[in-house]
Design a protein around this nucleic acid. Structure first.
Lengths: 123, 123
DNA sequence: AGCCTGTTTTGACGTCTGTCAAGCTAGAGA
DNA sequence: TCTCTAGCTTGACAGACGTCAAAACAGGCT
């Protein structure tokens, strides 16, 4: 099952999602995307996401001390981000490193594009 | 470089939020923005938001029948979107009309921008 | 006025979520 | 091997969330 030449990442980013403001998203797609927004809907996770996205990768040992929360709680939030497909984790030796998944990030950004047609209603 | 004609809307969009991937968002700002993402974190609300954003404005009477949910439930979800600052509502005669708030929409989109520096980690 | 339709509010119920303490697993080093 | 540290999992609990039925509110129509 080799899909060696297929650019999976771009396919997903482009084929999947027209901006929310272009045409109503269908129920099925909404069920897929909503958990991603939901994952960003907590202040702690939003900060974690931003810390991870602001660097090539981020060690849990650097993330945890930034919050007044227990280790398990941070771990739980990271799991939510991971299961939403927003970040990836990898253990290297003693520490676990988290890294953003740019496809997912781009997909959400594309959904929030505000085309010119709708922007006209602003003025 | 005269700034006398600077549009107010852009001020908010630019001054408020650097993209999540540029620098870690601070706790205060995260507390403000997270509820917006949270509001989009439900499939029904995501569809409502998309339906409203896809048209200049949308009547509740057209939104409700698109779901297998009671009127009060739809009304509740619309209230969540309204209190998150994502939409505005206005009663005109018999019906209530909902309209997207482009500033808020743009703000979220700006947060999810993926600058070239971080995108380099993709390849 | 009275009624009818459309929308929101209230109250209630079961489920989901964020949090911590305690226990567990993986890897490094002696 | 044994121990220490880093991180995850489990179990528990309070609070928040999604949903509906019933009631309340708003505006048009007779």
């Amino acid at each position: 099952m080799s899909k060696q030449s297929l650019p999976v990442v771009d396919l997903q980013a482009v084929a999947c999602c027209a901006p929310l403001a272009v045409r109503p998203i269908d129920a099925e797609q909404a069920a897929v995307v909503a958990p991603m927004f939901k994952a960003l809907g907590d202040p702690v996770r939003l900060r974690l996401m931003s810390m991870i996205a602001s660097a090539p990768e981020m060690c849990v040992c650097d993330l945890t001390p930034a919050f007044d929360l227990s280790g398990p709680t941070i771990s739980h939030h990271l799991k939510v981000l991971r299961e939403a497909g927003l970040v990836d984790s990898e253990r290297r030796g003693t520490w676990v490193w988290y890294r953003v998944r740019p496809e997912a990030f781009r997909q959400l950004g594309a959904l929030l594009d505000l085309p010119a047609t709708t922007a006209a209603a602003d003025a």
